[in-house]
Amino acid sequence: MGRRRNFLDLSYTVVIGGIAVLAVLIIVSPVIVALMTSFTAGRSLKFPPSGFSFGWYEQLFDPVRSRPIHRAAGNSLEVAAMSTLIGVVLATLAALGLARNRARSARAADNLFMSPLVLPGIAFGLAALVYFSTLGFRPSLNLMIAGHLIVTMPFILRTTTASLSQLDPALLDSSQSLGASWFYTLRRVTLPLIFPGIAAGAFLAFMASIDNVPVSLFLSNARTDTLPIRMWGMMETTLDVRVAAVSGVLIAAAFVLMLIMEWTVGLTRRMRD
């Protein structure tokens, strides 16, 4: 009996451990492969890359040859920054208004505000296209900001509501009973305490906007396209190695951003909980 159990436990370690190692490999290796390919000296996406060079990065940073890519990156940053900024204001206000409200209508409103997370983005993208063109708007960055606001705001609302629900109500009561006005309490007690939640949500919203495809796909044209749409176009047509160079830049940026967020607000802990 004991030997059988030892054998079973050994098989558990081998199977579970083996699959876990495979899982880490599957998660990590494509990122490393893409990064290595971006330094190829050759003209194709062969692996292992033929020779080492910064040639594709030089082409990528060349302001003349890569102007459409630079413009798309600028659009992405502008849309993400604006939609996150507006989202922070609207979602923080709404969270302050709804987080402590136990009424059924408040719960329903909260669920409604979170619904863009589950609704297939491509349906909302098409709906936004039909809506804005019926209203007579031409494609512009403002429309993209409006569309991105809807799909990225739930991230801010979620983390801010979570911080508010962990806030000790006694702190607010004592601030009030010490004579502080509602606004003073908000400014000096509530906001500083929920700030990490807002910042984590804003970071996730910003990244979601940078990464968004379904909304941008429908609301952009050749002049207002964002980086993912431009990269998709390049992958579908020429499959230029510059895509690898853009990927390399984005991988480095995500890595640095994540380290910063980890040190400042403990992002992974917040995402796990």
Binding site: P30, V31, M258
Partner: peptide, 26 residues
């Protein structure tokens, strides 16, 4: 956890591109 979350912050386009390099003819 860092290894798990990092790819999540990478654009889906980048992750898709990485698989072209992994699964392609060469």
């Amino acid at each position: 956890l860092f290894i798990i979350v990092l790819p999540m912050l990478l654009s889906v386009v980048v992750r898709t591109f990485a698989w072209i390099v992994v699964l392609g003819r060469e």
